[in-house]
Design a protein around this nucleic acid. Sequence first.
DNA 1: TGGAATGTTGGAAC
DNA 2: CGTTCCAACATTCC
Length: 249
Amino acid sequence: MPEGPSLVILREESAKFVGKTIARAEGNSRALDIAALPGQAIVDLRTWGKHFLILLPDSALRIHFMLFGSYRIDERKDRPPRLSLGFEDGSELNFYGCSIKPVDPDLDAVYDWSADVMSPLWDPAKARKTLRAQPDLLACDALLDQQIFSGVGNIIKNEVLFRIRLHPLSTIGALPAPKLRALVEQAHAYAFDFLEWKKQYVLKKHWLAHTKRTCPRCHIPFHEGHLGRSKRRSFFSERCQKRYPPAPT
DNA sequence: TGGAATGTTGGAAC
DNA sequence: CGTTCCAACATTCC
């Protein structure tokens, strides 16, 4: 569920709730006053990276699905919801296993929309500038930095690095300018490929690196390691993915 | 079936 | 006080 494109799908699927008034609310979230929700209208539903934002008349809720969160529209799972919103027409928006908390409803004060790779306001030049200011940052950590690439997750990270033939342990400061440009461009481009594949239920079969054992380009075994400050899984080919600067010998 | 994973936070440790 | 590390959270799949 968690990467940015999946949140875009959620927003599209839940758009019908905008303008409706909450008739019933329940759930086991302890971070918000659920009893105060009935009677309030859904003013807007938005996303910023992996955040799903529910705008109410005078407040806003932020839902983060973490690793395991899920949602159901007009149906329920066989477990207690973190938050369940019911509407007069019988429709429902249900969230499970996620983190929910109130946020400042002045979203423009909280969120930098230009950092969201899924946003129309995504600003690649700004991302490059932010990256150039952190020359020691590793490529594998850079892609997971939500302040730079909001919405990018571990799958997108591995696929982008493979696509641009860049070794995950490369440092940002050592990248030739075209490689840095490709990193930023493909973080955006792959996220939209991800979105289309996910909608068609064919995402996994398009994975070239993530969870794979063999490089589809050069056919040597992929390396797997928990790399970088983030220590998230990386799958990469030592032969096709160039490292900048070269590995110390 | 125990372990790992599309993620983040908060607090301990240094 | 800044940085880093790790447990905690929660669900599904292999």
